[in-house]
Computed example of a mutant assay.
Amino acid sequence: MARVLFLGGLGRSGTTLVERLLGELPGVCALGEVVHLWQRDLRDDERCGCGARFSACGFWRRVGALAFGGWHNVDVDRVHHLRAAVERTRHIPRLATAVEAPDEVHEYAGYYSRVYAAAAEVSGARIVVDSSKHSALAHVLRWSAGLNLRVVHVVRDARGVAYSWTKTVARPETDGAEEMTKYSPGRSAMLWNAHNAAFGLLARRGVPVRRIRYEEFVSDPRLVLADLAAFAGVSLGPSDLDFIEDGHADLKVGHSAAGNPMRFTVGRVALRRDDAWVSALPPRQRRLVGAVCAPMLRAYGYPVSVEAQR
């Protein structure tokens, strides 16, 4: 049975940073956002975190051979059909309340289970990390009998998330030809509420969920990583967190299939809170996001007042 640590939350909440640091722990293999593997990697042949095209990456070639007898045996159109049928936010209430999931849910989850199991065998890891983030996918995966699923719910102040979604960020895996998606503050506030609430619902369905706040993670990454390792069942030795020092971490090459451009970073990466939104997000937009997200901001321990944040 594959042991999977699923990183969930709304994008721009720091999940890629959490994934990269988790991937440095012994017995852990970080896979990136597997939800995008089918299109961006199998169809578009974008670059793996190691820098090679997906089709040329030895790690992923071995995973495909073990999971499916080769990636050419995967019916990507079928995967897309299943995703549209079962992996949408609007399907979460049905997935959460059903006594038994439809066959399409089990079939779709099966594709992921095979990737996770193959990646664990190829890497020799006891635990694989999927930073797909999507709350609907997490609700699908809970129905897979072939997974030992644990979820890390990563939360960041909604106004910081909203500001990040307004920024223009190039996608390096497309050699700068495309940019990452952008959302208006109002749109990201609605998504922040929906996705975070969905992970709370997942916890009430019996899935082990550990919530962490991005701000606390970057302030004391060693402490939070040690807690996450215990949650995942990873035993750490005295030197296993030595790659983290005051204000930075040293990262090795990884094989993230898709995700934030930071997945290509190798070497020293700064660990510091990004609170640029406090001054850079226009006051009207700050108030809008704060009003829309106020109940959950309070529930997660964030001040609703920007002055309190300052």
Rank of each mutant, 00 (worst) to 15 (best):
E179Y: 13
Q39L: 13
H139D: 08
T15D: 00
T174A: 04
N193W: 08
L95C: 06
C29V: 14
F243K: 07
S164I: 06
D227Q: 13
W71R: 10
D41E: 15
K252A: 14
R20C: 00
R171S: 07
N148H: 15
H134E: 10
S256D: 13
V224E: 09
A194I: 13
S219I: 00
G27L: 06
D157S: 04
L37W: 00
L7W: 04
G58E: 12
A2S: 13
L137K: 04
R62V: 05
D41L: 10
A230C: 05
G27C: 06
L288V: 09
D75K: 13
W60E: 08
H134S: 15
G233Q: 09
T174M: 02
R3L: 02
E33Y: 04
S279N: 14
A230F: 01
R90E: 15
Y163K: 04
S184N: 04
F217V: 03
A198S: 15
V79S: 08
A85D: 14
G64W: 05
V169A: 01
D246E: 15
V292R: 09
A136V: 05
L147A: 03
V86A: 09
I212S: 06
S188T: 12
R53Y: 14
R210L: 13
G233E: 10
A294H: 01
G70E: 13
R40A: 02
Y163H: 15
M296F: 11
L288H: 07
F217R: 01
R12G: 03
T174E: 11
L37Q: 03
S235Y: 00
D274M: 10
G301P: 08
R90V: 14
R40F: 01
P102N: 10
L202Q: 08
R43F: 10
T15Y: 06
D242P: 00
A101I: 08
S135F: 06
V253G: 02
R83E: 12
M296Y: 13
V155L: 04
N193Y: 02
P295K: 07
L10W: 03
R43K: 13
G254W: 04
F59K: 03
M296I: 08
A257P: 02
